[in-house]
Each structure stands twice: as C-alpha cells, then as structure tokens.
Design a protein around this nucleic acid. Structure first.
Length: 292
DNA sequence: CGTGTTTGACCGGCGC
DNA sequence: GCGCCGGTCAAACACG
C-alpha cells in the first residue's frame, strides 16, 4: 500500500507537468487530488499527535496526583507498619498492580522493587520525589554469559551478587557520570527464560547519552523519510508540519517519564510474545498502551 | 598509569 | 539477638 502510494508520488514528481495528461486526466487535476490527499493525511496526523500529547499530559497529571497521594500516605504511615506491609506487598505485587491503576506508570512494572527499596532505606527519601524505576527486557543468546545491556549510556559495574530466587547472578551498575548522575542499573537473567536479560533502571539521567542510542519506540529521525523524501513532499506546509512533528516526537522521546513508560510498554509487548506467564505479571496501564 | 572489572567483606533492613 | 538477604564498598587485578 505504502509502496503504491510512494510510486505514484514518484511518478507524479518525475513525469507530470502542468501541461501533460496522464491517462486522460489533466496533471493539474491529479496534483490537486494529491494535494488534497496530503492535506487530509496531514490533518489525520495532526489529530493523532494531538491525541497522543493530550494522553501524555493527562497521564503526567495523573502520575503527579498519584505521587502526591503516595507521599502523603507514606508520611502518615509509621515505621511500625513497614514490616508487615512490606511482606504483604511483596507477596501480592501483581495483584496490587491490577487493583491499582495509578502507580504503574512511572513506577512501571517494578512496584515491588520500588517499595522494597523504599522500606529498606527509610532514610533515603529521594524516591518520594522521583521514583523513576523501570524495567527493560533484552533478548540475548542463552550461551552469552555477559550481563551487559547496551542502552546508549556508559555504566560502571560495582558489584555482582547471586540472589536467592534466581540462580544467575545479578550485576549492579552505576552511571559513569556518577556521582553527578544518580542512575543505577541492575541486570539479571530471567529465571524463567535464561535468554532474557532483565535490566532494572533506578533514577533518571541528568545528561544525554554518549554512546549509540538504542531505538526504543520513536526516534528523532521519524517524521521525514530520509530515503524517500518524495513521501514528505507536498509543499512547504507539509515539510514544516513534519518538522514540527519531528520536534514534538523528539521532545517526547527526551522526556524520561515518556521513555520510561514506553520502555515498560514495549518490554511488556515483547513478553506477551515470548514469556506470556511473565507478561501476565507485568501490568501495563491503559494510558501507556494508548501510546503504542 | 589510568580506567574499569572482579570478588570477598561489610553493612543495614527484615523476619523469627 | 541472630541469621538471612540484598546492596555496596574497596582492594586486587586486568587491560589498553
């Protein structure tokens, strides 16, 4: 379908001139039709982008509200409650996820980790301000023993542990820009599927990636097809609109909340096809799915 | 020699 | 208080 359209556009661009007739139809008419179609497509894309932006904004509002509520609840709760509560939440993580539609966006799939951390370290209140915990699943060779997940950032390994619930070791990484960048990463093979690396990110980078960026969802180059610029032809308005789209997509992908949600959602989709039983436990909010 | 990795020791939270 | 466990530290080591 795409190819047909593209060929047609190319044909028009190369062969059509105002005075020529194609299949008995004046070229002007065809160009007008093409222009009309491009306009309607532009309108459709603009509407789509508006919906995504609105969804993102409402989601962000929602998240802020939830975080506020969470903070106030945690302020009210006492340390005395922590032990029983932790045990309860750890055992019922996935259930809690399904009952609570609110905390799963930034907290993403890793509500267990974030609550675990929060109760293990009551002195560290930074998580209350920015509980950016996200999980990324990476398919690797089962024979490959390395625990490196390429994500565009540079990491320094500072520890490795064998955990109780998983025979494969868990590697601990800090961002190379530490201590100025507080981001940490844990990488461990999935117990269910040894070919699956589970990377858990904590925090948000306060700098740009230095290495090659992994393409998660949208890329900054989306918007204009560099190989088939004819696709984006149709006048300066279309080009400027596409530049606008590109800018907006770029700003969305730069937003850590959005990329975090996107990564969670994508990894969830991957799991749906690879490890369904894991995917069942990985809750993706409807808001996040609406981005897909 | 500087930088990054490895790995045993250590620390603190948690459950009993 | 004790033991378990996850997370972190830091000395030793490897590598370019």
């Amino acid at each position: 379908m795409e190819t047909t359209w593209e060929n047609k556009t190319t044909l028009l661009n190369l062969n059509a001139s105002p005075s020529q007739h194609v299949d008995g139809v004046p070229a002007e008419v065809m160009l007008m039709e093409e222009l009309h179609r491009l306009r309607s497509e532009k309108k459709m894309l603009t509407e789509k982008l508006t919906r995504v932006t609105e969804s993102f904004n409402s989601l962000q509002k929602h998240l802020n509200q939830v975080l506020k509520n969470t903070n106030s609840q945690l302020d009210l709760s006492t340390v005395v409650q922590s032990r029983k509560r932790k045990a309860h939440e750890t055992n019922n993580c996935s259930i809690a996820n399904n009952d609570n539609n609110t905390f799963n966006f930034s907290g993403s799939s890793d509500c267990c980790t974030s609550t675990e951390d929060s109760f293990k370290r009551p002195k560290d209140h930074s998580f209350l301000i920015s509980p950016k915990v996200s999980k990324v699943f990476v398919r690797t060779q089962a024979s490959d023993p390395s625990l490196f997940v390429s994500d565009g950032y540079q990491w320094r390994k500072y520890g490795q542990k064998v955990t109780r619930d998983n025979p494969s070791p868990r590697a601990y990484f800090r961002c190379s820009f530490a201590p100025s960048c507080p981001v940490k990463k844990k990488v461990q093979r999935s117990a269910e599927d040894p070919t699956l690396l589970v990377a858990t990110y904590e925090g948000v980078h306060n700098h740009i990636a230095r290495g090659t960026q992994v393409s998660v969802g949208l890329t900054q180059s989306e918007g204009i097809d560099p190989i088939h610029p004819a696709k984006s032809s149709g006048g300066l308005n279309v080009i400027s609109d596409q530049l606008l789209l590109q800018k907006m997509a770029s700003s969305l992908t730069r937003d850590p909340t959005f990329t975090s949600a996107l990564a969670t959602a994508i990894s969830g989709r991957i799991l749906e096809h690879t490890v369904p039983e894991l995917a069942n436990n990985l809750y993706i909010s409807d808001h996040v799915q609406s981005y897909m």
